[in-house]
Design a protein around this nucleic acid. Structure first.
Lengths: 338, 338
DNA sequence: CTGTTAGCGCCTTCAG
DNA sequence: CTGAAGGCGCTAACAG
């Protein structure tokens, strides 16, 4: 493994000169450049970024810490992050926290040791020590997808409250009065916000939300399955369901199918997050679409901006993207036409 | 940012002793350990992995270089890789080559500079310089998903030829005689193998494959869309289509829908790669399923094994997983019953 | 059980 | 335009 020294010797120059040629910094004659470049090629020299980073204190590496890359929403978001990062010369380390605050902290510690330049974090819980851990080392973070109330930190997320409000409004306009909300764990801001938007829409319509209709569980297919089963057991069975994410939607759908409940005839079903068009043949679900790719891009841009200006403690941005309601078949027609 | 020196001073020991405590290596009294650990906590010391790696020549980082994380097949594969890597104390850098050999080489160069301990590579082309680049630096690689004929390298992939053979056989058994094959670029082993399996099945059945029925394009939705349109223009329109991956399947489906061709009534359609059950409500496509998660896991295990034994030049493994044929509605009933 | 010495490969500082 | 000295934070190798 040749080092900068070997190249210098072969080119008959000092090693600092080689460094200057590699980084195209300072002065050197074009003759020197040629000799150095020749030596580099002949030796197959590859600079050691580790050593460089040790000196420069910059690794050109960002950390992407999310809950589960397997969820198409996060996959798309990750792609947005990677594109923006690599365009700026950064590479990406990614980790899955699986919604566990413990895994999250463990990863943050490892990533801090690796001296990543910045973090893109989808926090497992709204109240997370991970952010404090990162901030205590003066490393920039941008929080993605979820709000972290009371923390001075950049956030890029979607208007979950508004999206849920619109979806619920849609259901109400179709004549539904008994609507169940299947959401994620308390403390996860997107889950909380989607319940809040649901509540507000009901109140706007003068409907008193029945507490039993508000179910909380995991943001997984299993969670959706279980909550939908519970919803079907309620004394007054709902005529519509609002699911808080794509996996809950699918799980709920499965429970309904098993119970012989037809969507949308017997039960309207709307949710959050669309599947990418490249993945779905028969679009069926009415959803609030979040611009995952754009969110990833934007968050990365903000992070890179912070890195460039080294201004961590300034005022913090909160970028909130609107959701886009896409009406398809799962919401059904107006109930009164039945 | 405190260093190992600061900790040593505070604990009243030499810095090497701190190092020993941190890494739990060599000998030290339990009293020393306590003093050092106390100092570490008090200072909020975090070891600098960069410096450690510079000495130890190991970064505990693996590179995952694939074509597009957005494809659910690769997402699942990536998750398998990450789980196996993190269980062994490794973190993962991931990059998307978008099937471009140039991007691929660029990334490999960057990753080599970052001194990653090993590579997991989905090569953009069967004939790729990336592998040679990596091997020239004596860094272990495991190739994923695609074969690289003539290269002495570990490979974990699926039996594409066999899967295509079975799918084609299925179509033949249903009475189809005029079957189109929509595959990826020549030189991509999975694409080539899936054409080969298709050919063999036809020959087995005594059918001479018409060259016009074998279409090649991109492994994308767009590619599938275009190839399906071409297939519909053929003088003798096929009664069935074999698509080489999930995106081609979806694209083909779209083209058929637009042309008013019903699947499976007017055209049977079978493909490769299933969508994860967590993602799909109405399973429709008959597919050859590849065990993506297991492939990722297995490849990572092999790579970690190589890292442990430092044996790069020994005999190389080729692990070939079977595909599993899942028959659903898109393949339709026997043609003779119409 | 503990410490000293000497670098890993690179780049900042200062001197030609 | 070029180079020598020194150190980033850590740990092998060798003492004690």
């Amino acid at each position: 493994m040749p080092t900068i020294h070997d190249v210098a010797k072969r080119a008959g120059v000092g090693s600092i000169t080689v460094s200057r040629v590699i980084n195209n910094s300072g002065y050197f004659s074009s003759d020197t450049r040629d000799r150095v470049e020749k030596a580099i090629v002949e030796l197959g020299y590859v600079p050691n970024t580790l050593a460089r980073s040790l000196r420069s204190k910059r690794t050109n590496t960002l950390a992407l810490l999310l809950t589960d890359i397997t969820n198409p929403f996060f996959t798309t978001l990750a792609r947005g992050v990677e594109d923006a990062a690599s365009a700026a010369g950064y590479t990406l380390i990614f980790c899955n926290s699986d919604e566990s605050a413990i895994k999250e902290s463990t990863y943050v510690t490892i990533l801090l040791q690796k001296q990543v330049d910045g973090f893109l974090l989808v926090p497992a819980q709204s109240k997370t020590s991970a952010i404090e851990l990162i901030r205590s080392r003066d490393v920039p973070v941008v929080v993605l997808d979820r709000a972290v109330p009371g923390m001075a930190v950049d956030v890029v997320r979607c208007d979950s409250e508004g999206g849920a409000h619109q979806l619920t409004q849609l259901l109400i306009s179709l004549g539904h009065r008994c609507i169940a909300s299947l959401s994620g764990p308390e403390g996860v801001s997107t889950a909380d916000d989607r319940v809040a938007g649901y509540r507000r829409a009901l109140q706007d319509a003068g409907i008193t939300p029945d507490a039993g209709l508000i179910l909380r569980g995991e943001l997984t297919q299993d969670g959706g399955y279980q909550m939908a089963q519970q919803a079907l057991q309620l004394p007054q069975r709902p005529t519509a369901i609002l699911a808080a994410n794509n996996f809950i939607t699918i799980g709920a759908m499965r429970a309904l199918q098993e119970a012989g409940v037809q969507v949308p005839q017997d039960m309207a079903l709307v949710g959050f997050d669309d599947l990418p068009p490249a993945m779905v043949t028969f679009p069926f679900f009415t959803v609030a679409l979040q611009p995952a790719y754009e969110m990833g891009r934007k968050a990365t841009e903000i992070l890179l901006q912070r890195l460039k200006s080294r201004s961590i403690n300034n005022s913090h941005k909160e970028v909130i993207f609107p959701t886009q309601i896409i009406v398809r078949r799962s919401s059904g027609d107006s109930i009164s036409q039945r």
